[in-house]
Amino acid sequence: MFTVPPIAAQRLPELLCTLPKAELHIHIEGSLEPELIFALAQRNHMPLAYPSVQALRSAYAFEHLQSFLDIYYAGASVLRHEQDFYDMAYAYLARAAMDKVVHAEIFFDPQTHTARGVPIEAVINGLYRACADARTERGISASLILCFLRHLSEEDAFATLQQALPLQDKFIGVGLDSSELGHPPEKFARVFARCRELGLHRVAHAGEEGPPAYIWSALDVLGAERIDHGVQAVHDAALLQRLVQERIALTVCPLSNQKLRVFPELKDHNLLQLLEAGVVVTVNSDDPAYFGGYINDNFTQLFAAVPGLTAQHAYQLARNSFEASFIPEADKARFIARLQAHCTAFASAA
């Protein structure tokens, strides 16, 4: 086990911001900043319900998940053409690279766009081109995960999968997102079984607002390889034990959890409890344009708010992000070695 050399508490924020890390829970439509929304609306000759960037940003006060989703889908409506998706994804990847993200696994919601008549090819090709260019120009690798909207039917999910299959070489897996309550994982058992046959990775949102039972179902019914959010797992001792024993990762999003009132205050977050229980926890930004921060903001604000988080925890969270990713084992080992070298060099530079 690698031990981080002693680092003064006042230097911890700098360490958090410079650690090489992976981001595994990022909805690309949720990275659409108000400035870009207005730019795309103008380019596509679309009216907006808000008179200014500031008026739109001021609307980002959410009572619960559904109130966020309502404005999230409205913002995504400005995405019409392949170049729009490219511009959105490239803007996120450039920002993530500044936060020392070296690998990202990006969620996208094709049904949000195909329902408006946008061809799925425009969505996937635009996102994929941005990933390819960011690798060359920014040094950040990225893969795409196609998500099904759980408030829609499984038949709709099957139709979306069928539309996407000619482009299967451009995404690595499937996920399940949108409104959790009232839409249990079982609803999508058959389409996830088909995705498994196709060799696609499988992840699912579960245990954010929904109960621990949804996490069990995501694992046992959907065959999920990691759980997005999953913070409600602390209420089920047997589930916690399974997560630890099977090294099933949780992609936790602290600022999102606070913004959507999963926890009253950031200081109440249970990430440290999960981490000390031995769960493979990671830190991510979810929908950074709406929830007040990208991945480094999530790290620094969480560590400032939750007593007891240390440099060793920071290292473990970054290491977990590589372990939980879908990159080849050789790449995981390379990134972890880079992470350890960074921690050692950072400590020696004191």
Rank of each mutant, 00 (worst) to 15 (best):
Y128E: 00
F263D: 01
L40C: 06
E276K: 15
T136D: 09
F38N: 09
A204I: 09
V281M: 14
Y90K: 09
N257A: 08
E197L: 12
S348A: 14
Q312M: 10
A324I: 11
Q162V: 11
R319S: 01
R319F: 01
P6M: 04
D70C: 07
L339F: 04
A347P: 07
I336Q: 01
R202W: 06
G308T: 13
I327K: 00
V78H: 08
A49S: 13
A193N: 08
R247I: 03
R194H: 11
E329M: 13
N125C: 14
P110L: 13
M1L: 09
L219N: 06
M98A: 13
L32A: 09
P119G: 06
R11N: 12
I37T: 15
P13N: 13
K170H: 03
R95N: 12
P185H: 00
D286Y: 00
S285A: 14
Q66I: 11
R11F: 08
N298L: 06
V283S: 03
T18F: 00
Y290G: 01
A237R: 15
P307K: 02
D287E: 05
L255P: 05
G292C: 03
Y60I: 10
L302D: 08
L149Q: 15
L69C: 11
R226P: 10
Y294F: 13
T112C: 09
P166I: 12
A159M: 04
I120F: 03
N296S: 13
A349H: 11
L243E: 02
A122Q: 06
A337I: 00
Q111L: 08
E329T: 14
A224R: 09
T300Q: 13
Y72L: 08
L222M: 09
G230H: 08
G230K: 04
A218K: 06
K187G: 05
G210T: 10
Q42M: 01
D109G: 04
L152Q: 07
I140K: 14
Q83F: 00
D331A: 09
H342Y: 01
H229Q: 01
A347D: 01
L167R: 00
L339S: 08
